[in-house]
Design a protein around this nucleic acid. Structure first.
Lengths: 201, 201, 201, 201
DNA sequence: CATGAATGAGGCTTCATTCAT
DNA sequence: GATGAATGAAGCCTCATTCAT
């Protein structure tokens, strides 16, 4: 399926490192704008202002750079959330802050969204593993809170996927489409729903 | 530039109608399994057991059949939900039944999910219009219920997108990935969360 | 190269005759407007308002109808010139009238020009035979006139091809492109050149 | 819709330049022999002994290379005539030399003829512009000669098109079909006709 | 390390022709 | 005679990848 003669190279020089980063940055823009399948390697190398051959010095294939890109963004995002929510003990506040950081991250990396969504059609494993990794932390956090009696008891996995679905759709609608700044009031209302549901008290 | 002489045809005979349907059925499977970009016209015509040329008797392009397919599935799904929830007045029960029908539909049309998600990368307009159409009905329904005081008052648009996100992610996880039958108990728990939230009473 | 299962049919009924003529008329328009290679059988059958299958009742192939069309137009043109110049004995007057009739014919059959020119790229034989037939008569006529001492003596073949080239280019420029009516004065000037040349007396 | 990423390239290296020229040379032969519509890209690349993909490194389409080819031949031909007739002041001699060079050029580029004729069915604009450019120079030259009283006064445009028609048809008949060497005697006779016409003195 | 010309498999699309009704 | 659905060979074009410089 996938031939290769040059092994993927980890850059050994400063210059090489820079070139590789230029390619990754270019890929983020190109894949984000055109989509993985519509984008071509030339699009990326032109955007990065390097020649076609250079691409294959650092990446094995189109799939390869996509994978590396998506994985690094996932890592960054998880890290941002982790750091931003450090020290918050109250579950509700933690969710509130998590949402805020997620939407902020989305605003900064406008293409992240399309990148993640496409992963499903480029590399199923990549897509699944993202959800598994992300949900794992989420689930165990929720479970803790439930055991401590902080929040109502539900199937924590179900809850995690509900929250992720909400983040996804709200992010899509308001950050990606409407390009509105997601205000604190907006997030407050969202958290209010999560906390209280739609049922009358 | 010059008008096409082999225009896309609406079939004029019974036989033609059948052939077109065979192609649509084949496309559902092929697009669902391989994804739009990985699938080729030949994949579809082989699955439908017709020759390649026949495809172009009824469709203008790969995009064309995809669009027709997605639009017809959207219509069917909305219709199924509409019919299934007719006569239900209680909002919570309506949501419960809506979820049930949605998951059922998903189980029957295993590929619907992937089809819808891909629309974003095939035809942005198609994707947007789906969300707009679907959410419009949802929003106005929620607004009614709020005005009647049946449920808590939130931004109905926000609520609609939350619900849609939940349906999407829960469907993805349990119907698509786990391939579990979504039991009534499962839906009850889901609805319980929507009704009461995670906050302690 | 050319398969066939149905032999070309000479229509046996009035209805058949009409259908065949409709196809020929349609072909004149379609080939004339789009050109042989750009035109499709469907273009012709649609223009003729008959079904695709009907075409093959009367013609063996696309080349076949083109050939029949071109040959019949050639015949008509030659006939028109022959009849129109009957009885003219003076060579110069004969040329004058020949030009007039040719341009008139061109005006009536706007597509004839493109049809003839394309013949070269559809069926070399057809093209050659047209020139041979047309020039044969021309040459022998010129030869007669020379022998009678009516006109200067030249290689009659050379003269014939010069005249044909003139007709072709003048027709192209003024009838086809400019769509001007070719006046008698215009033809007179043309004949004057042919008679006297560009040299000062 | 989406800008092409593999844009047609002007070759940046010597090697590239050579390859492009090989393709142009091959196209001259292939288009000349088979005709534009009967020729395929593969025919051209095989003749040029390069791979199919290479074609698209330098040309956008079959039309594109045809256009470039025809335009460059036109330029060369006009240049050859211009250079060859430089310094000739006598109009009749100028025509004589013009004819000679034209037929010589035709003999060298046997396919030029078919190439030019086909232009009409490939790119109408190209065809027209050729005639306009070519005739423009011709017309103004004739006009000058008339004003100087060197030759009889006619509509110079008419005369130019007559001469072009003669060149075309004589070239077709004797260079292309008969493949005879066009002798000086032959041209002398031609020029004699142009000078003196067919009328008796 | 960087370059960009060359490759060719793979996919889309057209349309002349056939044939069952 | 007429119909139009079905066929599939043939051609255009793209672009991921290789490799000589």
């Amino acid at each position: 399926m996938m031939k290769k003669s040059y092994a993927k190279l980890e850059p050994r020089t400063q210059r090489g490192m820079k070139t590789k980063q230029k390619l990754l940055d270019a890929a983020e823009i190109v894949f984000g704008e055109k989509g993985f399948h519509q984008a071509s390697i030339v699009d990326i190398t032109q955007q990065a202002k390097v020649s076609m051959g250079t691409f294959y010095t650092y990446f094995e294939s189109k799939e390869d750079i996509f994978r590396e890109l998506v994985m690094s963004m996932q890592k960054n995002m998880r890290k941002a959330i982790k750091i931003g929510t450090q020290g918050i003990t109250d579950r509700i506040e933690l969710e509130r802050e998590g949402f805020r950081i997620f939407f902020q991250f989305l605003q900064k990396h406008r293409y992240l969204y399309r990148l993640f969504r496409q992963a499903e059609f480029v590399d199923v494993e990549l897509h699944r593993s993202y959800f598994e990794t992300f949900s794992r932390g989420y689930i165990s956090g929720l479970q803790d809170s439930m055991e401590k009696g902080e929040i109502r008891a539900y199937n924590p996995e179900l809850l995690a996927y509900c929250f992720m679905g909400i983040m996804d759709y709200v992010g899509m609608k308001w950050v990606l489409w409407e390009q509105q700044e997601v205000t604190d009031e907006f997030i407050d209302e969202l958290v209010c729903f999560i906390k209280n549901g739609i049922g009358k008290p």
